[in-house]
Write a protein that binds this DNA or RNA. Structure first.
Lengths: 324, 324
DNA sequence: CGGCAAAAGCAAAACGTTTCGCGAATGAAG
DNA sequence: CTTCATTCGCGAAACGTTTTGCTTTTGCCG
């Protein structure tokens, strides 16, 4: 690898002049050209360690997710990267595989690697634990909020999304609406459950607790719980499923038993745009604004990186019901 | 952040002694304790930039994937990380979103960040392009091979896997077996297609080109092509689908049209272990050794990082047919 | 107690940058 | 032609480590 010293030797200029130019400083036209030429010939590129050591910034953003295998986060991160890259930041992704130890460990890793910012989907960690590790590094939370965390946060208005979806089912005359909820340790899942209860309350419908099924956000639980609904003496006439994997599971279980969606059992799922488009009649789903989530998170982070020290912001994006 | 200098001051020892001890050198018992105490009190942790600058290694491995949203790679990477972490290496993941420019760009990024090793799923890049960017950094290719690349490679014996699966269908009496193949630009897809042709040849069955459908490894093409098979004047009596997303698409399409798998149309899919377990009767699938792929890739990389300079190895792992 | 080998500790240089403060060159104004 | 302000370029220090070669200390043996 060639260094800035090589460029200096080649051009006959000093180290500091090269560095100044490369960082946007002014040099004479003639030297500018010489430097450009030398850089090109030598294939020089800055040593990020040396730069980061001195300048104390790495032009790098760490993204910390519970899992790598998620179409939802995949899409969000793609949008995020696009924006950040435009401002010169490179992203890399770490995952903690839903594991608490790893979650904290990766936060430490990111801090040790002096990423300039962190985009983070929290699961087990508390605000204090995060702060202890992230220190002064700006953190933007996405998808899930974290109590008492003074961090910028971009979430979907889950309560409203669910309210809207279930309201829709009520509007079609349903009175027994099954909910396949997520793990109540996760803020999104809690909010979705609250939305379900609230809309029933607002419409003066009784909440039958047996119609609220506790899923794990995974394929298997979606399938199992949907099956369980069907097996009830008095099954729900409509089912609302609150994430992608469980929606898929529910659809599989329905097909399995020869139950047509949404004719035999009315149905609204979550997130699975692709899937939705190949099923006919098209199923309705709650469609989350993944691109916008990435975009907003990037904007918030860039603002912090630019020195914005205003109080933490909470962005609550609107989901929409497909086919509406 | 406190530095090694702070630790030195605190203990009254010299910089170099601290460094030596922290890197496994010997110091007197009494000093050992003093250093440990000081480190704990100050919350010292090494500055990775300074270390990497001097020592020219970052204890970091970059993983470069086409997409973040893949259960297959997700699982492979989880296994990989587990092993690498045990040897002190941290992993981070970069994705190129199937895009050629990004693929090359991320390789450059990894090189500039002086990762000690790269685990890489190639898609568009040629061996020369990779080499030009990775330089001397050890690279291990996974899942897909790259022509003329002198890199360690861990793949699945795709040809054999497909051979076995299709042979199985033949054994059940099928003579018209549909293949939903992947994009022929990708080595795995090519090999799977070759496997299909070979087994037919070996059993002296004619290859009907209209039974080889060109998919894109995505949900939509799986659904569409499976539907197209059913619409043929003389549909195949069995269908073999060559990756996860397309398998899911095919299953959806089958359900949609009221075609029971595997009774109405015999069926073998790929990779979707979870899915498989919730469908009954269980569908047969080709099950790829994801954990082993991660494990082997990690082992190969660790060997290179340990200085192994032997010629590049190619590991061809065996897939198995589920339910067998 | 002297001598010696081994162990432990140290100072200094190096890694490749950025940045600070100062001197030199340039060009405009009087 | 001098003066002054401005731009440009330079040397040197600093960032926090690791490493090398040397000196000091320790502990053992005769």
């Amino acid at each position: 690898m060639s260094t800035i010293k090589d460029v200096a030797r080649r051009t006959g200029l000093s180290l500091s002049t090269i560095s100044k130019y490369l960082n946007g400083g002014n040099v004479r036209e003639e030297n500018r050209l010489a430097i450009d030429a030398a850089v090109a010939e030598l294939g020089y590129s800055v040593n990020v360690f040396a730069r980061s050591l001195k300048a104390n910034r790495s032009m790098t953003v760490g993204v910390l997710l519970p899992t790598i295998s998620s179409p939802f986060f995949g899409r969000v991160v793609a949008a995020l990267e696009l924006i950040l890259r435009r401002s010169g930041y490179e992203c890399f992704v770490c995952t903690y595989d839903f594991d608490r130890e790893q979650e904290l460990g990766k936060l430490e890793f990111l801090a040790r690697y002096h990423v300039d910012g962190i985009v983070y989907v929290p699961e087990h960690a508390s605000a204090e634990e995060v702060r202890a590790r992230a220190g002064a590094i700006p953190v933007v939370l996405i998808d899930r909020s974290l109590e008492n965390a003074q961090y910028d946060t971009v979430v979907v208005d889950n309560l409203n999304a669910v309210y809207m979806a279930v309201e829709h089912l009520i509007g079609r005359g349903h009175r027994r609406i099954g909910l396949i909820a997520g793990p109540q340790t996760i803020s999104t899942a809690r909010e979705r459950t609250v939305g379900y209860r609230r809309v029933l309350a607002d419409y003066c419908l009784p909440v039958d607790e047996s119609l609220i099924a506790a899923g794990n956000y995974d394929l298997e639980s979606g399938s199992r719980l949907f099956g369980a609904f069907l097996d009830m003496p008095q099954p729900p006439t409509a089912v609302f499923v609150t994430n992608y994997d469980m929606t898929l599971g529910a659809i599989m279980a329905a097909h399995e038993r020869g139950v047509a969606l949404p004719d035999d059992v009315d149905f609204i799922g979550y997130d699975n745009v692709d899937l939705c488009s190949i099923v006919s009649p098209k199923l309705e789903i709650v469609e989350q604004p993944m691109d916008e989530m990435g975009l907003r998170a990037a904007e918030l982070l860039l603002a912090r990186l630019g020195g914005d020290a205003s109080p933490a912001k909470l962005l609550r994006l609107k989901a929409k019901l497909s086919n509406l």
